[in-house]
């Protein structure tokens, strides 16, 4: 599948007759990255799907006003991150039976996945990640899986590069400890 450049997508989105085609091109270009970013944060596919739909609806509503002083990719990741965090926040406020009370709750969700295999390293890594505090989880997944440079991450999360490095180091150490002991 050939992907259009961001500038081309933006230009076509601003023309009424090519708006939907441009939006389709945008979703197809970024859907995998946005989906996996959300899925690693909220764990279940159903929740990730809801979050992803909301993210792209927000993108549709805001794209016309998008000022090109930041990268489209960075802007979309910022929307995606905010949407994931507000979803998790809403879950915490729900009655106990349906909520994700703490990070252990998300780890339990990982264990509840149909394909879960406690012996496999990738599942152990997921459980370790879900036990991290929210901010460290975000920083770790953006760096480890999305291979995002600190400079870009700083724009997405609105945190200094120094603080992000420290956060990533703490997270990586905790995960290493977990993997060595389980």
């Amino acid at each position: 599948m050939t992907h259009h450049s961001d500038q081309e997508i933006l230009y076509r989105f601003r023309q009424p007759d090519t708006k939907e085609a441009a939006f389709t091109a945008l979703v197809e270009k970024y859907q995998q990255r946005i989906y996996w970013h959300a899925r690693r944060m909220v764990v279940s596919h159903e929740d990730a799907n809801d979050v992803v739909q909301n993210i792209f609806i927000r993108v549709w509503n805001g794209l016309e006003k998008f000022r090109e002083d930041s990268q489209l990719y960075t802007w979309m990741y910022r929307i995606a991150t905010n949407e994931c965090l507000s979803f998790l926040d809403q879950q915490k406020r729900k009655p106990k039976a349906h909520s994700i009370e703490q990070e252990e709750g998300l780890a339990e969700r990982v264990k509840g996945d149909d394909h879960f295999d406690a012996q496999k390293l990738e599942w152990k890594l997921q459980i370790a990640i879900q036990q991290l505090p929210e901010k460290q989880r975000l920083v770790f997944t953006l760096r480890y899986y999305d291979e995002m440079p600190y400079e870009q991450m700083s724009k997405v999360l609105g945190t200094s590069e120094g603080a992000l490095k420290a956060s990533y180091h703490h997270a990586a150490k905790k995960i290493e400890d977990y993997l060595l002991n389980h």
Partner: peptide
């Protein structure tokens, strides 16, 4: 963290044709 390998993949599954229909 030398004990943590890089490049470990995400183990979650996605329903068939999910990305084809998302847009």
């Amino acid at each position: 963290a030398p004990g943590l390998k890089s490049g470990i993949t995400t183990p979650y599954q996605v329903p068939t044709n999910y990305f084809e229909n998302l847009s």
